[in-house]
């Protein structure tokens, strides 16, 4: 088959997944997406994927799934009643290719959008705004804080966890700390110092378990709305600050603890 000839030049890396490869195959034949000769395309797709496998390339499972889907559609189209109503008067059976065609069209539209974004990206690459260093000095007040999101917190936590793995200590005796105690400890310190450096709190942990407990305590305090976490600049230090007055915080904490005990 002449159409098979160039397939050896097809590189796995040049495709963003099976839909991409399939669209390429259909396009290179210049056929209407709605009239895909499924048997031929399934054969071609299968032999390309087998070729890659023979080269020992790590093929993502998605390609194998697509090859199987194509084979399934092919066999369904071989059934005698394809295109005929199953019973007299019933709707004709749907074209087995329908879903695949829809996916291909979606993928095609997506490529148009990607091209458009790529054009904008190139155009915008050298459209730089004013670097904000000039104002840093006069604006060092609390309104320059960014609200930290969960993703930032997790990053900080992961950073510390990795560091803890590298450090080693002589462990004398296990010192169990509960999340409850940690929460109280953090709140207590917040009352004294107003602001706490979150990374400093993580750094002060002596074991992995204490680090995990501290992190959980921070999340729990956040969830209860007792503290807020702020960041001066992206990837900068993360500061924790108390949000409520001491008595109010105490109330919420006690409520929470009694709820917790009930559950246990």
């Amino acid at each position: 088959m002449a159409a098979d000839a160039p397939q050896f030049k097809l590189q796995l890396q040049s495709f963003e997944g099976p839909l991409d490869l399939l669209l390429h195959l259909v396009r290179s034949r210049e056929i209407d997406l709605h009239q895909i000769p499924i048997a031929e395309v399934a054969h071609q797709f299968g032999s390309i994927v087998r070729g890659w496998q023979a080269l020992d390339l790590a093929i993502a499972g998605e390609y194998l799934l697509m090859a199987a889907t194509l084979a399934q559609i092919k066999s369904r189209m071989l059934l005698p009643n394809y295109g005929q109503p199953e019973e007299p008067g019933a709707e004709p059976a749907a074209d087995p290719r329908e879903q695949l065609v829809r996916q291909l069209i979606e993928h095609q539209a997506l490529q148009e959008i990607v091209q458009n974004l790529q054009g904008r990206e190139q155009k915008q690459r050298f459209a730089l705004g004013r670097p904000d260093s000039a104002l840093k000095e006069i604006l060092k007040s609390e309104n320059t804080f960014l609200e930290v999101n969960l993703f930032d917190l997790l990053q900080a936590y992961n950073q510390m966890l990795r560091r803890k793995e590298a450090e080693s200590y002589l462990e004398v005796a296990p010192e169990p700390v509960s999340v409850k105690e940690k929460m109280r400890g953090l709140l207590g310190r917040l009352r004294q110092d107003q602001d706490l450096d979150l990374l400093e709190q993580f750094r002060a942990c002596r074991s992995r378990i204490e680090l995990i407990v501290t992190f959980l305590a921070v999340l729990e305090l956040l969830r209860l709305g007792l503290v807020q976490v702020l960041q001066v600049q992206p990837l900068g230090d993360i500061t924790m600050r108390s949000k409520l007055a001491a008595e109010q915080a105490e109330q919420i904490l006690e409520q929470q603890e009694s709820d917790f005990d009930k559950k246990e």
Binding site: D32, L33, H34, R102, I105, E106, Q108, A109, L110, E112, I113, N116, L117, R120, E121, K123, Q124, A127
Partner: peptide, 29 residues
């Protein structure tokens, strides 16, 4: 990053749909 005023500044899906339709006669993907 893309120099957009807001999200409506992106080309509408209808425009992409027309592009796709010109090629395939597809529904709004």
């Amino acid at each position: 990053y893309f120099g957009l005023k807001d999200l409506t500044d992106l080309p509408t899906l209808e425009e992409f749909q027309k592009l796709a339709e010109a090629q395939e006669g597809s529904p709004n993907p």
